[in-house]
């Protein structure tokens, strides 16, 4: 019969075993993190989705006065990508045409000193096989009229996550025989859970000029956006864990963007708008927005 060890000795053994286990786990789960430039194929694909998710002005404020609230719904069209654009130069099959449209609820509050606060949250609901959890905030304030054009600087931030089966999508099982083998061998016969995590900080200047007694308001913006982007390739192994053999792609960039649009106000509390969003080197797309203004109590 062995002699029982002293408690301090037992604690030391447990501590050493714990440290060793943690070190082994950390080593096994270590992921390669690749930094990409916007000029690379991977950077362009990341930049495309980043631009598609950007929180733009949408349309000028519907009314003046404090403590007013605007509730709106925006729908953004996400252009289709061809095979070369989807594969991002890595020459592996990827399904990144998951969501042709991005619906985004919007809220705006008129605060004192003519400050306007905007917020948007894409809740984690699965739409078009994509689950988003994205929050955006913006602050703006008019700085005056110049030749009839009202100028409004705006600062906006976005952060969150989009999850979808991009690297390994069940569509591959309906593709070529090579793609079917790829899905079985590389994807473990399961859809991937890829995470795209954009973080944005943008500064822009909005100019608008009401026409037809304020019913029609053409507007345009120009600005720059600082982007911190991360794409975590989430191939799922048989045991349900993420395959650490696939890298995490990251990109940081500062890029210009511009929008132009038209807002139509059929009534004093209702606005509908169309906005063209241009992100050079990423996309040109259109968004529609309908919003309702709640009056001051």
């Amino acid at each position: 019969m062995s002699e029982p060890r002293a408690p301090s000795c037992r604690h030391a053994s447990v501590a050493i075993a714990l440290v060793a286990a943690l070190a082994a786990t950390a080593g096994a789960q270590e992921r390669e993190v690749q930094k990409h430039l916007f000029s690379s194929s991977e950077g362009k694909l990341l930049g495309f989705y980043s631009a598609a998710l950007a929180f733009t002005a949408g349309a000028p404020s519907l009314g003046k006065g404090r403590w007013r609230m605007e509730v709106g719904l925006e729908a953004a069209y996400v252009p289709h990508l061809n095979r070369e654009q989807r594969t991002a130069g890595s020459d592996k099959p990827q399904s990144s045409n998951l969501a042709p449209a991005l619906p985004r609820p919007r809220l705006a509050f008129s605060l004192p000193w003519q400050v306007r606060a905007e917020a948007s949250w894409l809740p984690p609901l699965r739409v078009f096989d994509v689950e988003a959890n994205l929050i955006s905030l913006a602050l703006s304030r008019p700085i005056g009229d110049f030749a009839g054009v009202q100028l409004v600087p705006r600062i906006a931030a976005t952060a969150g996550r989009i999850e979808g089966a991009i690297t390994c999508n069940e569509d591959l099982t309906r593709g070529t025989s090579d793609e079917q083998v790829y899905y079985t061998a590389v994807c473990f016969g399961r859809e991937s859970r890829d995470h795209f995590e954009p973080r944005h900080l943008s500064l822009e200047l909005l100019g608008s000029r009401p026409m037809m007694h304020g019913r029609l308001v053409p507007f345009a913006t120009a600005g720059v956006r600082r982007e911190w982007l991360r794409f975590d390739i989430g191939v799922i192994r048989h045991d349900g864990t993420r395959d650490p053999d696939h890298p995490i792609l990251t990109m940081e960039a500062t890029r210009p963007f511009a929008t132009a649009g038209l807002q139509w106000r059929p009534g004093p509390r209702l606005g509908t708008g169309v906005e063209v969003v241009v992100a050079p080197g990423s996309l040109v797309t259109a968004r529609v927005l309908a919003s309702f203004l709640f009056p001051t109590p």
Binding site: S41, K44, L45, L81, Q85, A279, L283, V284, T285
Partner: peptide
């Protein structure tokens, strides 16, 4: 609307 980039294999 269009994607404004090319990434040749």
């Amino acid at each position: 609307a269009c994607a404004d980039f090319q990434s040749p294999e």
